[in-house]
Structure formats: C-alpha cells, structure tokens
Design a protein around this nucleic acid. Sequence first.
RNA 1: GGUGGGGUGGCCGAGUGGCUAAUGGCAGCAGACUGUAAAUCUGCCGGGCUUCGCCCUACGUAGGUUCGAAUCCUACCCCCACCA
Length: 377
Amino acid sequence: MFEFTLDGRAGAARAGTLTLPHGTVKTPCFMPVGTRGAVRGLHPAEVERAGAQILLGNTYHLHLRPGEDVIAALGGLHQFSTWQRPILTDSGGFQVFSLSGMRKVDEDGVDFVSHVDGSLHRLTPERAVDIQWALGADIAMAFDHLIPGQASHDDARAAMEHTLRWLERCRHHHQTLSDGAPGRQTLWPIVQGGTHADLRRASLDGILATGDWTGVAVGGLSVGEPKPTMHAVLEALEPALPQALPRYLMGVGFPDDLLEGIARGVDLFDCVAATRNGRHGSAWTADGKVNVRGSALRLDAGPLDPTCDCEACTRFSRAYLRHLFVAEEHLGPRMVSIHNIRFLIRLGETARERILNGTFDAWAAEWRRRYFAKGEH
RNA sequence: GGUGGGGUGGCCGAGUGGCUAAUGGCAGCAGACUGUAAAUCUGCCGGGCUUCGCCCUACGUAGGUUCGAAUCCUACCCCCACCA
C-alpha cells in the first residue's frame, strides 16, 4: 500500500504508478477538485468518464457541512459520495490563506469564522488529521501555513518553520491513528517557503529529516507570484526531491503550468480552475483559451477543441455551447467543466506516453508552440 | 368629444432649470479566475476622433422663455385610464 513505482523518465519528467487503498494512479496526473464532496456541478460518472483517477476533498468545507461525523457515520467520503477511486483531502491549510480576512493564526492552530453561519471553528494540526481520518481519504495532507506569493523572506521563513512544527504534530498524531488501522491512509508533508529558494530547500530538508514519507507536496505556489518564479522554485527543489516519492504540486494549475510542472519533475496536480473557469465560460484548447460566451462562436459549427475526446467536444458545436451559456442553461457550465477536466487529464495521459516512449521534449515544445500561437493562453 | 396621466438612450425605468451624454436594472460586448466564501467578479456600453481629453447628435415633434431646458411655456402628434 502507498507504493510509488517509477515507470520511466525523460530528463526531470517522470511517469509513475501510485498504489493507494482505493486503486492505482498513473502519473503525471491531474486531480479534479471536489471541495465539498462533489466536483462542482458534475456527476461522479461524468468525472470517471473524463478519466479522473483520484479526486480532492476539503477538510474545512466538509467539516462545516455536513460534518466529518456525519460522513463517518455514513461510511466515509468514498461511500457517502459514491466515488470509489482514490481520494486526497486537503487539510484546510489553503483556507488559512484564502479566508485570511476571517481567521486568526496562532502557534497552536487557527480560529476560523465560518463563512456559512459566522460560527467559530478551530483547526489545529491534530484536528485537521482527525477530520481527514474520519473522512477516510487515501491521502491526508499536513496542516500548513500558507502565505501570499509576495511575502517577504522573513514572513515566508516564519510560515515555513511554523509549517514544520505543525508537520511534526500532524505526523505524530497520524501515526497514533494509523497504528490502529495500518494501510488505511497516508499523510503527506507540504514544502513551504514562498518564492525563496533557500527557504524551500530548508523546508524540504526539514521534512525529509523527520520521517519516512510516501509522497511530498509543494504548496504555496500560484498564489500571486510570476510564473518564472514558480518554475525557479521547482527547479531549485527538484534535485533534492527523492526520486522514490511522488511529488504533488498543490493548486496548480492551468494547462501550461501542468506542462511546465511535469517537465520539472512533478507527478500530481490539482486545481479548481478547470471547473471554475469552465463554469465561467472559459475553455482550454490545444490552440489556447476560448471564451465560450464570445460572439465569435455564434455560428461556429465546429467542436470546442478538435483534438479533444470529451463528452462536450464529441457531441456539441461551439455555437450550441455558446447558446447554453448565453441562455444560462446549466448544461453549458457543466459541459465546459467536463471539457476542461478532460483537457488536463489528457495532458497528463499524453505526457506519460511521451515520457515512456522518449519523445517528451519534442512533444512539449510543439505543445507550447501551438498553445501559445494565438498569443493567448 | 371631455377630464386626468404619460411619451427619456436597444428595452424597462430614474431624473422637474445649471454638478446631465443623462442614476438604476436588463440585454449586448470584452476580460479575469490556479490546494473553490466565486453558476462569480471587473470593465465597456449614443456617434466620431489624435479616446485619462475633444467634437458632434440627443430626453415625442415644432416653436418659445432663459446666460443656461430632458426639466418652464405654447401648439401639434401619439399612448393609457375614466367620463360622454
């Protein structure tokens, strides 16, 4: 359980197989986000047909509603949601960042004011682990202290060291739970340190010194910093990342981010952009971004993306999808969400093939050329 | 035929002498979104241009009062309600 085998490499890029209690995951892989136990607007069968191998859930949001006790009573998140493939849960660390106006951080943990009803909720490393254990995710994430991409070296260091102290508490608490049910769930640490290479390396060193991990995540990127900065952080980290561990770049990203991440040795990604942008009428295609609501598509009989095999592209015209958005039919946001998810998943599938057959670099170069040809992305 | 009410930018609808090219909303157009407080948010939206400004044309039609009118006056046209 929790094994990762490397199937092939191309430069820094890797193809692997991750074995988890609920199934295996072929990498590189994009993981759709189902924050509240559902990928926004989609049926699990649709997510399966899009090729998703593993989904995300969120500690904070599922704790607020319906509550981890409810989910546990109904057999855990897999049974509750009927998603039987692997699940990874985020710890609520991102909410420390995204709900910055509604929480207070201290050494021990974080007080959140619920955005749902204003009630007070406290998350600590132990609580985050408890909740994720109750949810029954295959992979639980450490509770981390995430800060904006522009954060100073001092602030980034403080949050990174704070994250390490929390990690040790997460690890210890998770170990005591796992002792009673080995093989049920694994815990992954998160590298922090903002945009500062030295802090990133220190964070990774601190993580690797504390335990035998089954995977490692890189967090705190794509939070306002320029893309070249994110690439530089990944490049600074890559040589120090153990080849034997799957690497998960949290919260990333857009298609080009996935490609650049894969090229820099990342195996796993998640991002809400596929569903959020899809819901908002922005579709990714081999030729760049398409505004599905745009008047240019009014009489366009062609598919959203001629290279795509998703349920939207194989069935509907651009004109029809645009009509759905203009008329505010829910089918529109749903279909473009499916398309975007499929697009990212297919990107991972293709990258894997190319890594395994030795043509990754050439393919990546051509992919970039075409994706950016129109000057949009 | 009489009385009263009303005619405002693609639509609805504020505005009763200057701060009004004219509040809002809708429609339309463009853009944003990265471990989801987002089926959300932002910008444009009479025309033209050398577009952080200038010039035209505009509040039913025509005239008038005034330094200045969508706002006041007169006539006419049209719509609605009630009364004949």
